[in-house]
Amino acid sequence: MEVLAIIGALISLAGSLFLLLAAIGIFRMPDTYNRMQTGTKATTLGSLLFFIGIGFANPSWWGKLLALTIFIFITNPLSSHVLARALHFIGKSPLLKGSNDLEVRDDLAVEKAEEAKDTGKGDQV
């Protein structure tokens, strides 16, 4: 019993480490897309490890933890996808501020521009 609790605590610690790194990432990343890359993704491995750790400490909670994991794994990518989509919709380019790297790839903007040309709307995108 004691051993299981210690193993659980160690796994939870590893999970919280990933959550900490994600928080640092939100501070350090230069633009919204990259903040989302680190920030929203903390919930994947961070919370997965956290739940596994709690599961070791309290074995009777496995069912609820499994349900929580499934719901997080279904809803988390959907919300970050919607945020990224809205961000691109209002015209935010993935280009980083300060770097005048003209070679930044943005296939979606290219596609949108072509579509606008086809429908004759001009470049309102």
Binding site: Q37, T44, L45, A84, L108, E111
Partner: peptide, 30 residues
Amino acid sequence: LANSITLTPGTITVEIKGDELFIHWIFVDA
């Protein structure tokens, strides 16, 4: 597929149009 791509850090699915996925990458190799 879109959810799995978004779940793996470093990639976010920004848009799906028909059979084309638009993926934001944290590091695009030239």
